[in-house]
Amino acid sequence: MEINTTQYKHCDLVKVVGRVDSATAPQLGDALHVLTDDGRFKIVLDMTDVTYVSSAGLRVMIDTQKTCRQLSRGELVLACVPQRIYETFDLAGFLPLFKFFDNITAAVGSF
C-alpha cells in the first residue's frame, strides 16, 4: 500500500494505492493521525486505486471520521470509491456516515 498526502488551502488530499487490510491499515491510520494531530480535520480520501478494504480499514476510517467531526471542525470525505469497496461500506451500514464523491475536484471543492 502507498499513501501520498497533498495539502490544499481548504483541505488535505490523501491518496491511497493498493490493499487496506489488517497488515496495512495501521499505516493508513498513522498517515491520517499526522493530519488530525496537526489540527487538520478536513480530509479527502482518494480511493481511485484502492483494490481492497477490510474491516480493519473501515475501523481506521470511522475512527478518523469521529475525530474530524468533533465540534463540527471538519470531516473525512471519500472520493472515487470502487464499486466492490462501496458495497462493503453499504454492508457495514457506513453509507450514511460519509459523503461520497465521484471525482476528486468535487470532493476537494466541497470544503
Binding site: S54, S55, L58, R59, I62, Q65, K66, R69, T88, L91, A92, G93, L97
Partner: peptide, 20 residues
C-alpha cells in the same frame, strides 16, 4: 453482531469481520 444502524458517535466496529 455490530449495530449497523447506530449514529457515528455510537458506532463500534467490533464484530464487523464475523458479520462480513
Amino acid at each position: 453482531l455490530p449495530d449497523t444502524t447506530a449514529c457515528l458517535e455510537d458506532r463500534h466496529t467490533g464484530g464487523l469481520g464475523l458479520y462480513f
